[in-house]
Write a protein that binds this DNA or RNA. Sequence first.
DNA 1: ATGCGCATGTAAGAGGTTACATGATTTT
DNA 2: AAAATCATGTAACCTCTTACATGCGCAT
Lengths: 185, 185
Amino acid sequence: MSLQHILLGIIAEPKSGYDIKQEFDSSLKHFWFAELSQIYPALKKLVADDLARVEGVPSDKGPDKKLYSRTDAGTQALIDWLHTGPATSPVRHGFLGQVFFMGTQKDREAALKFFKELKAHYQARYAALQAVEAGWKAQCPTYPDGLGDDDFFMQMTLDAGLRFQRSYMDWCTNSIDRIKSRYHD
Amino acid sequence: MSLQHILLGIIAEPKSGYDIKQEFDSSLKHFWFAELSQIYPALKKLVADDLARVEGVPSDKGPDKKLYSRTDAGTQALIDWLHTGPATSPVRHGFLGQVFFMGTQKDREAALKFFKELKAHYQARYAALQAVEAGWKAQCPTYPDGLGDDDFFMQMTLDAGLRFQRSYMDWCTNSIDRIKSRYHD
DNA sequence: ATGCGCATGTAAGAGGTTACATGATTTT
DNA sequence: AAAATCATGTAACCTCTTACATGCGCAT
């Protein structure tokens, strides 16, 4: 349900499916992602529902680009989405399932290895978000509160990403300490 | 992919699909959940794959219960899963998508309302986890480090849940302050 | 000439949700 | 007498992933 709305948000400026995929991979990946094979049909559906229009333009290299942009109905559908209340569908965390049943396996070293790997994973994600933030800081010396109205809210999602990753990392660090003091002392 | 493994974890003791659903809703819901319509076929598949066995027993009320338990191959499959490394598939956060595009709508009060609703949502989840923790504390006076080996890891997932909810709440609080000081001063 | 980046898609399948279907017992 | 709880499932649908298919232009 959310993908359609997120696409509507992205095509405030005319964009092709290929452009959108790159935007997912660069600036949106901390909260959403989609494959091209999902994006193309979703854009078609927006047009079928009169929420977007297409315009074919020749490309420098490769086939023609299809640029999608919001119709007025599309903008309204986006705003309606913002008014339906926060989209907080519950989330599945496979790694917590693994921890939940980790007592099944008596190998303490395996448990430590697991948490160290998890911590490294979140550290990498954290570093990636910090790099995005650094780029933003370089562009705007009064970051974050001197940002324009649109960027203000976008930066909030980056702030959320940074906080959440830190929280995961802290939990890993603490868990490693607890395992060590329980089994290595 | 993870559901099968989580079911294997749960059926260390013989359990019916109905029992499992209740366990999801009570103690596992901070990291996983599943509908009965998904659980029943999944259990059948475990039996077909020789990872579980079934035993039909008469129930006090209602139809016969089918109790599922792990085979040795099932236990091995569970342990193998723990050795494949942390299951960190990326997560989609619809509400962050909404925040990302919140600048589209110029209504500041709507933005504040959104964040307050979100904060209330996470506060409710946090309170639910605290209640689970309180029950645990009542049972075990040396909580959390005096817990048995199995419970030790299970409690870690509760700790994770509490930390993550706090982190979401803090972000909401901070975002509300930022919106207020940007637009209400 | 081989592969990479640009640019479009389709098809099969896995995973998950919602709605439907059945029937017994216990509580209000 | 009606509703909730116990207990099993099936079917249609939606979302997302993985694999496949096509073809141009540019750099090595």
